[in-house]
């Protein structure tokens, strides 16, 4: 049949590839872009939340420095807060997904690999978003606890 001039013959793998390279591929790319944007936005939002929470606690942080808390303790507190927030967000996201995905018009398949990847991304976002708060906390002088 491949010799006929008016038809093209595809194998199963080639057919799959052809379908994926068409409209499905475009949709996949759009979703990918959307996912990257959401990840960046969530990182910025989380960084701002942690920064604001740190600003609220500048006096206690200065007090901790005054009574001699080492920097690693203060960094640990901010990181711990960020990781707890990230963990909660992951848990809530997973739970909401379990409830909502069956209502979607198309089947949503979330594999264990996907979950692990998302957990890794959440971990990275938590760590990086706490950097701004840590920077602010490191600049607080112990004398700010006085007066």
């Amino acid at each position: 049949m491949s010799g006929w001039s008016d038809v093209t013959v595809y194998t199963g793998a080639q057919q799959e590839d052809l379908l994926l390279r068409g409209s499905v591929d475009r949709a996949r790319r759009q979703i990918q872009l959307f996912r990257v944007l959401l990840t960046l936005i969530s990182a910025v939002i989380m960084a701002l939340i942690i920064y604001t929470l740190t600003l609220d606690k500048l006096h206690p942080l200065a007090l901790l420095k005054l009574i001699g808390a080492p920097n690693r303790t203060i960094i640990g507190l901010i990181l711990q807060q960020a990781l707890i927030m990230g963990g909660l967000a992951f848990g809530v996201g997973y739970g909401v997904g379990l409830k909502l995905f069956p209502m979607f018009p198309r089947r949503v398949l979330v594999t264990n690999d996907d979950l692990l990847r998302v957990a890794g991304i959440v971990l990275l976002i938590s760590v990086f978003s706490s950097l701004l708060g840590i920077w602010k906390a490191m600049r607080v002088a112990p004398s700010e606890a006085i007066g």
């Binding site: 420095k65 005054l66 009574i67 001699g68 808390a69 080492p70 112990p142």
Partner: peptide
């Protein structure tokens, strides 16, 4: 800072 936490109270 270490000296403060071990030797001084405020």
């Amino acid at each position: 800072r270490r000296f403060r936490r071990e030797n001084i109270g405020f």
